[in-house]
Design a protein around this nucleic acid. Structure first.
Length: 332
DNA sequence: TTGTGTTTTATTGCCTCC
DNA sequence: GGAGGCAATAAAACACAA
């Protein structure tokens, strides 16, 4: 286990101990090389090597590097305890760790030559130095991952905020569509009233035809007309708003429409200013579901199939059931 | 004092490179 | 094939609250 049975030399000065049937020489000599400025240590041979003077401010240690066994000053006792104990892990001294840290900062990889020198200077087994570097690299990597994660988290939060804003914008626009659709229905209803109560159920092609004509003429400049609308598209739009993940439909409300009669609120799909990229963006990002919006008839493309305007659903479904805002709109 | 969570030292097994 | 690196893990040492 600890030190793979090799053990660590304790105490300063010169001497030797019998460890696992192996006599280990120990000496404070390597430490001198570390502590004393201008040492002839091979530290000079590598720019990744660190002088211990830099680490400890040139101050000679009160306690030897080799003294890795607790804080006890009684060396003899230490020796006695150490060699009568089963193998145990022993932490490196603060000074040893500081020195290794400095060395790691200089270069986090350990060439064999440097490893041997470090081991010699610190009074450790080369393997211990290698293990320390190995573990240190692992810790560094973990910390690096944490940092990277934090950066990604910040980026994510920022993108999420943008996304939420876009989502709100989308809901607002959807609500506007619904509002305008309601206005249209109201207009239709009024026209139906004029044509006589006996024909109430017959929301006829005539009215729809007029509507289409009116709308088309109103948006003539835009080259695109909004209508006719298909009921399932409308209810799809409605449910999309209601089922939206933020689903705060009430908050969107109609307060946004300060003046419902203001033509500036009219929903007009004008593609003239929208690049293909923008359209893609809108269709993919802002409009995740193409069914969420009423179909738009392109006045310039009469060849394209025209959405049917099938209003043959009973009137009550038009209002309270499918369109909870219907009654409110009547007051407009 | 003790239980528990964290840190540090060390091992093992696998992989890559020369 | 040996050396060295890495991930996963074990286990001792340590910190700290109850």
């Amino acid at each position: 286990m600890a030190g793979s049975g090799v053990g660590r030399v304790l105490g300063g000065g010169l001497g030797s101990v019998l460890l696992h049937n192996q006599r280990v020489q120990y000496s404070s000599q390597p430490l001198e090389a570390l502590f004393i400025s201008g040492s002839s240590s091979s530290f000079l041979g590598s720019n990744s090597m660190v002088s211990f003077k830099d680490v400890c401010g040139g101050k000679r240690l009160e306690r030897s590097f080799f003294h890795t066994y607790d804080q006890d000053d009684n060396v003899d006792e230490d020796f006695d305890d150490y060699f009568h104990q089963p193998e145990k892990k022993r932490r490196l001294t603060v000074e040893q760790v500081q020195f290794l840290e400095k060395s790691f900062e200089a270069e986090n990889k350990l060439e064999p030559e440097r490893k041997v020198q470090l081991a010699k200077d610190l009074g450790l087994q080369p393997r211990q130095v290698a293990i320390w570097f190995q573990n240190r690299r692992a810790r560094w990597k973990t910390k690096q991952l944490e940092k990277d994660f934090d950066v990604l988290q910040v980026n994510y939060d920022s993108l999420k905020a943008d996304y939420d804003n876009l989502l709100k914008e989308k809901e607002k626009l959807q609500a506007e569509v619904v509002h305008l659709t309601d206005k249209l229905n109201l207009k239709q209803k009024e026209q139906g009233d004029h044509s006589g109560s006996s024909k109430m159920h017959d929301h006829s092609e005539t009215n729809q035809q007029e509507l289409v004509t009116d709308s088309a003429s109103e948006s003539e400049d835009a080259h695109v007309s909004i209508f006719p609308l298909k009921l399932e598209d409308l209810s799809s739009a409605k449910s999309d708003v209601l089922d939206s993940d933020s689903s705060n439909y009430a908050d969107v409300g109609y307060s946004a429409f300060a003046d419902p009669g203001d033509s500036s609120y009219a929903f007009e799909a004008d593609h003239s200013d929208i690049s293909q990229d923008n359209e893609d963006y809108l269709s993919k990002s802002l409009m995740p579901s193409s069914n969420a919006f009423p179909k738009i008839k392109d006045a310039n493309r009469p060849d394209l199939p025209t959405e049917s305007c099938n209003f043959d659903i009973p009137g009550e479904y038009h209002s309270s059931l499918f369109w909870p805002c219907w009654d409110a709109n009547l007051k407009i």
